[in-house]
Amino acid sequence: MTTVIDILSWVLLLAGSIFVFIGGIGTLRFPTFYTRLHAASLTDGIGTILILGGLVLQAGWTLAAFKLLAILVFLLLTGPTAAYALANAADMSGMKPEENEVSEVEK
């Protein structure tokens, strides 16, 4: 049983790392602000869930597992909020997705 849980947790951790890695590449390589934000949200969402899920499986039924779940809840609340605040701030400062796309690619 422990081996199954161990393997499952490693699968989750690896999958999470891959998503975070792809998110990181996307944040660096995408041309415009909004597409970069989209890539970064990958890290916030599925990456967090998978990695913390894997860690919870590693921790078992302990206080650490509860703490990890609490961290997961907070990250799932704050991550999208931060992304929203960023997008909103960009929108308010006059950066529109369409115009911006062309101008930044040319750079």
Partner: peptide, 15 residues
Amino acid sequence: HHLIPRVVGKLLIPF
């Protein structure tokens, strides 16, 4: 005027 940060922020402050 920014509803989402405000609601989430107020939710987090007690914690």
